[in-house]
Amino acid sequence: MSLFLTQSSIGRKLVMSITGLFLILFLTFHMCMNLVAILSAEGYNAICEFLGANWYALVGTAVLAAGFIIHIIYAFWLTVQNRAARGADRYAVVDKPKDVEWASQNMLALGIIMLAFLGLHLYHFWSKMQLVDLIEMAGGDVCSQALENTTNGFYHIVNTFSSPINTLLYIIALAALWFHLSHGFWSALQTIGFNNTTWFDRIKWIGRIWATIVVLGFIVTIVMFFLDGFFGLNILPLLGA
């Protein structure tokens, strides 16, 4: 039975949809967690500690990574299949119908932007936090300063967003994410069959609003830290260090 997840188009789409929804859920938590950093460094670091190199966080990370990897592999696989299905000759003139969202036709491009960003993001945070812990646990050589900062997420945030370039890259990636989700959210529900004529527009709007909340949440955090660092305001976290 499970063969249909690879062998049938709707099965493959189901995999995209479930992984996509899972990633949305993850991002929603991630965004909420980030908001904590605005309020309290301690609170934020407590979460970081909770999500350090312990078994449940590792399982979580593994599942998350698997979700990403499956989503990405399927994304490329589906795209290759879909291009082949168009046939050898391309249309000379194409004109997008007005009801078709731009994002829906550029999901892979948006995904690739996010993928590039993901590398950067992992370098900025994960490589300095959970990875260091892991290396250390594996008996690797880690300098003590680095080890100390593995649970100091707050420090890494401040560090990363003091750079205007980083901030800009993050905002670009978040814009891509918004477009990806503005289509992805309702598309995922449509794929699992959760849609009908009455709910059609409603689901589209719920998707857009959800995407906007998630992306805005991230952007608020980033921009506040950037302004705080760049202009040396030092008002963050709002509830004091």
């Binding site: 188009s9 789409k13 299949q81 879909n82 009801d99 078709v100 969202e101 829906s104 289509h183």
Partner: peptide, 20 residues
């Protein structure tokens, strides 16, 4: 659906150009 896949049609990504 099995026949549709076998004949070489692509995977729907819900872009909606068809309905438009």
């Amino acid at each position: 659906v099995a026949k549709m896949d076998e004949l070489g049609f692509g995977n729907c990504t819900n872009t909606g150009a068809c309905a438009a």
